[in-house]
Design a protein around this nucleic acid. Sequence first.
DNA 1: GCTTAACAAACGAACGTTCGTTTTTGGTCG
DNA 2: CGACCAAAAACGAACGTTCGTTTGTTAAGC
Lengths: 192, 192
Amino acid sequence: MKRSRTDVVAAAGRLFAERGYHGTSMRDLGRELGLVGSSLYAHIDGKQSLLLEVVDRGAAEFQASVASAESATGGATGRLQALIAGHIDVVLDHRDEVRTFLNEAGALDEAHRDQVIAARDGYESVFRDTIASGIADGSFRDDVEPKTSAIFILSILNALDRWYRDTGPMDRVDLTDRVSAFILEGIRAPAR
Amino acid sequence: MKRSRTDVVAAAGRLFAERGYHGTSMRDLGRELGLVGSSLYAHIDGKQSLLLEVVDRGAAEFQASVASAESATGGATGRLQALIAGHIDVVLDHRDEVRTFLNEAGALDEAHRDQVIAARDGYESVFRDTIASGIADGSFRDDVEPKTSAIFILSILNALDRWYRDTGPMDRVDLTDRVSAFILEGIRAPAR
DNA sequence: GCTTAACAAACGAACGTTCGTTTTTGGTCG
DNA sequence: CGACCAAAAACGAACGTTCGTTTGTTAAGC
């Protein structure tokens, strides 16, 4: 049976996401593809480079998403909502790569791990800057801290894949609306 | 040098939290304590039972915290704030056990993993019920979903240990206030 | 001096990876 | 269309290493 390099990377993403890098053996990965472990080396350099490829794929999805949210209209609020919607789609459409990107970067060698951390920080800064500009133009409260709020928002978004299923009672538009409402309005009832 | 069982469990928590269960070898753990790997077996049954003990310790901290928040005053809002403050203290005062509890439960055998999942769900339900009672008495908006909101709140709280340091510019009271404000009020500026 | 802790050595199993060989594949030509 | 063939893919066996754990023995503490 002919397998392509892409098949191997996809299967690696699945297993790394599910069991972690150290919890996945090359023989496990082979079995996932109906192969014996050593056969994988016809397609890839080794386990570590496989992890790198999966993680890079996750990072690239976020980068593509943020690029397309650049053009959002509706001021800081509209821009933030576009960032949120884009993030949700990335997390849910590329679960395995994103999970690996978020949870298994620590298994990379130091140089690549530092790259991932820098990429995450750059991504976070887009949220931070959007919040800061919303404070400046009066869209957001002036007592929120951009840095802290950005982290709170990303904490919610990055945890979505742990519990949300497209097959559940809530569709993705509902989900996005609820996330946005929670972030923008909180849960307290407005004073009457 | 005399080591106690407690020392071993504490060191295991440290390494499991930092490198993951599968990323930590018994020889690594021995080295952490100035021992050779096989010496650990004078204190513990094996690696798996060590993981179980660390995870149980994390679960117990949450249980103790929720028990002491039972007596909070101030209606649903006060109760929720007490739950938040308690959760923050548990996460930051028991980082290693909590991290292991949250991230490494998948490395447990199925029976114990199911126990952990049940414990987490029970804990989440306290948040859910508090939110539901706050909706019922008018403290919270009536268009929030208790289940979804509880998950959002816990997503923020469980991610704290990834970025917050007590040594930073923000002390723990500040942190707790910012988290509470974000959850209760959101970030949007109130209409004028 | 008796219990407890730590050791060094060894166990079989599993790890990532290499290697030489066999099988499968897709294109080319009679 | 079937026969051939180079290239690619999969294999089984083996490598050196590391894994979790067991065992018998030595050192340390009350």
